[in-house]
């Protein structure tokens, strides 16, 4: 890197200075593209899996029932992963988001049973989710508890609350799930509405992270906590709001998911979702080191997991194999990202 080179705004971000532009072989250019667009690798793997399952299972895999079930696996994971990315960029984690996802429809169900209109019940349930996020955030920043611990605790608390107040019995029908009107279709009764919600929040949150002041402050806080605070960024407030947003998104799609299935099972445990969601973030190219992350990648990671689960089931492989494959993909993605980081570092040294 030439120290003292004149200011040059024309170089695109993806191009580390100090490399000749001319005569770069194609494979190097492709490699560079993959290094700087981390979402590309999981996209390629996903497309590869899609092709593989299409060849193996044919129209069984590509018909809309199968694809919607892949989307059904991917939806909850994606919704949670998208919010989780913000926390991973902040070098924090939210282990309770999965339980919030399950908790929100219960609150809605209880409030509706207590006589409130559906819309109000949904609104209050989402407010409760935001409250959980705020508690997660405030305990973490005020009492200086690692968020791993804070959110582990809230996860158990929410799980317990659901068990207590549900009397350990399933709830059905969920408000909206029994009707066929537009609002019920929008809120999950239509096969594809959940995944469309997830697509929408992916786009919105990606914009938040890369285009807004809040996003740049998340990156700053996660990248250099002390420095960001010294520069006058209210780092604690940024963290609390990120926890709130993560819980809100999980709760929102949780309600949609409940309408889709039409019943609630108090025995569902949120950590199952969280582990997949963090896996999706990692597969998508977000490290757990803070300061960097991609929302789109997390979404792609969720889709990848969904296709894997659906495809393996269809070609008759036991679900036990699915876990092995998820593990392999996570390690592969992590190792690949590590290699990419090393390549970037090396290209900067020359």
């Amino acid at each position: 890197m030439q120290a003292g080179a004149p200011t040059d705004t024309t170089a695109p971000a993806a191009e580390p200075p100090g490399q000749q532009r001319a005569a770069v072989p194609v494979w190097r250019r492709v490699l560079r593209l993959f290094i700087y667009q981390r979402e590309l690798t999981p996209v390629v793997i996903t497309v590869g899996l899609f092709a593989y399952f299409t060849i193996r299972a044919g129209s069984n895999f590509t018909d809309s029932l199968s694809l919607s079930s892949a989307a059904g696996y991917a939806g909850p994971i994606g919704a949670i992963a998208v919010g989780e990315v913000l926390l991973l960029v902040l070098a924090e984690i939210d282990l309770s988001a999965g339980q919030v996802f399950l908790f929100a429809p219960w609150v809605e169900y209880w409030l509706h049973n207590a006589g409130l209109p559906v819309a109000v019940a949904i609104f209050l349930a989402l407010a409760a989710c935001c409250g959980v996020g705020a508690i997660n955030g405030l305990i973490t920043v005020r009492l200086n508890v690692p968020s791993f611990v804070t959110t582990l605790a809230t996860n158990f608390i929410l799980f317990g609350l659901v068990l207590i107040y549900s009397n350990m019995t399933q709830a059905t029908p969920i408000p909206l799930s029994a009707s066929t009107g537009f609002s019920s279709k929008l809120m999950g009764a239509w096969l594809w509405s959940e995944i469309l919600w997830v697509v929408a929040i992916t786009i919105v949150v990606q914009m938040v992270l890369t285009r807004t002041r809040f996003g740049v402050r998340i990156v700053a806080t996660g990248g250099n906590l002390l420095g960001a605070a010294e520069a006058g960024i209210p780092v604690r407030r940024v963290k609390v709001w990120a926890f709130v947003l993560c819980s809100f998104l999980a709760g929102l799609v949780g309600i949609v998911d409940a309408v889709k299935y039409g019943s609630l099972d108090p025995g569902n445990f949120g950590v199952d979702y969280i582990l997949y969601a963090v896996g999706a973030c990692v597969i998508g190219g977000t490290a757990l080191t803070g300061g960097r992350g991609t929302v789109i990648g997390a979404f792609v990671g969720a889709i990848l997991i969904g296709i894997l689960e659906d495809g393996l089931t269809l070609i008759g492989v036991s679900t036990n194999d699915f876990y092995v494959w998820v593990g392999v993909v996570i390690i592969f993605a992590m190792a690949l990202n590590g290699q990419f980081d090393r390549l970037i570092a090396r290209s900067r040294e020359t």
């Binding site: 700053a220 250099n224 960001a228």
Partner: peptide, 9 residues
Amino acid sequence: DLALIPQLP
């Protein structure tokens, strides 16, 4: 310590 963010342009 300069208070710069390594990951930001």
